[in-house]
Design a protein around this nucleic acid. Structure first.
Length: 290
DNA sequence: ATTGAGTCCTGAAGGC
DNA sequence: TGCCTTCAGGACTCAA
């Protein structure tokens, strides 16, 4: 499931191919993903040169030379792959085990193609005027970028103040901190030694001043995201890097998908538990997460 | 305003 | 073996 580290991995993988390249054509194999493609999507992209490939939370943003921006969200199962021309007709060697029936978008460049594949179609793409980027609803609603300087204990304490919801639900709320998903929230909470079901407001502390726990949580989130990016993301189900390589951070999970296995914290003798919280699986160690 | 439940989708995994 | 059911989850919409 692409969360921030996976999207960043995809960005880094695609950048050498996309930045500076001209789009010679776009082929849509269906009219929508989770959302419909905007009107004249292919036509508005054709002939444009990509000037920059950036990321905001789990969104990829390709800036174009005419001021437009192509926004892509990978949903749960979206991935890009790069193919160089000539594309082998009828050959499946380069599809890397992906069902070509789920190749929904082909972006043709002068010297190759970038193909978007998404079995579950929870992703989407849209095209907006760059000047309106910050006003786009789904981007404007996003909270703090967790790898930015704006993400610090004081800010997090302010966001959590007065929240009745659980710590885990608060961290999954993209309007507070943007880019975390189920896996990295579980991992960060374990690293910080914090129980997922405690009230988020408790992390705000008196006068909304950050507590030691808030400081720990900020560090844990940063660390786990940076380590995951360095590992090329986590390959669960079908996340791969743009060059088809697998990320390997899943081997460093300490709680996610480890129910009934021993806690990996030094000297902790707890057993990892799985519980459903807000309709999502939460993995945690009841012994060392308080 | 905040919060939680329901929804979309397909492939993997488990049960019989 | 194979069919059937259940589950996974990001982010939207809706309702309390």
């Amino acid at each position: 499931m692409p969360e921030l580290p996976e999207v960043e991995t995809v960005r880094r993988g695609l950048a050498p191919t996309l930045v500076g390249a001209r789009i010679v054509g776009v082929e849509l194999r269906r009219h929508d993903l989770r959302l419909p493609f905007p009107k004249d999507f292919a036509k508005r992209l054709r002939g444009r040169r990509i000037t920059e490939l950036s990321r905001r939370a789990k969104y990829l943003i390709a800036s174009l030379d005419d001021g437009q921006a192509l926004i892509a969200h990978l949903g749960m199962s979206g991935s890009f792959r790069v193919e160089s021309i000539p594309e082998p007709v009828g050959a499946f060697a380069l599809t890397r085990n992906k069902n070509p029936n789920h190749d929904h978008v082909v972006i043709r460049l002068e010297n190759g193609a970038v193909i978007y594949n998404d079995p579950r179609r929870f992703g989407f793409m849209t095209l907006i005027e760059g000047a309106a980027l910050d006003q786009q609803d789904f981007l404007a609603r996003l909270g703090i970028e967790p790898l930015s300087n704006a993400f610090h204990a004081q800010a997090l304490a302010g966001l959590f103040a007065g929240r009745k919801t659980s710590l885990k639900a608060a961290l999954l709320d993209q309007s507070l901190v943007a880019g975390l998903g189920n896996i990295y929230v579980c991992e960060a909470l374990h690293r910080a030694g914090l129980a997922p079901d405690q009230a988020a407001a408790g992390l705000a502390g008196p006068q909304d001043r950050p507590t030691k726990e808030t400081e720990k949580l900020v560090r844990a989130i940063r660390d786990v995201l940076e380590e995951a990016i360095a590992a090329g993301g986590s390959s669960l189900r079908d996340h791969r890097q743009a060059d088809g390589a697998l990320g390997y951070f899943q081997h460093q999970f300490r709680v996610y998908d480890r129910a009934e296995e021993p806690c990996l914290r030094l000297k902790c003798t707890g057993i990892i538990q799985r519980r459903t919280q807000n309709g999502r699986s939460t993995f945690f160690c009841p012994a060392c997460q308080k």
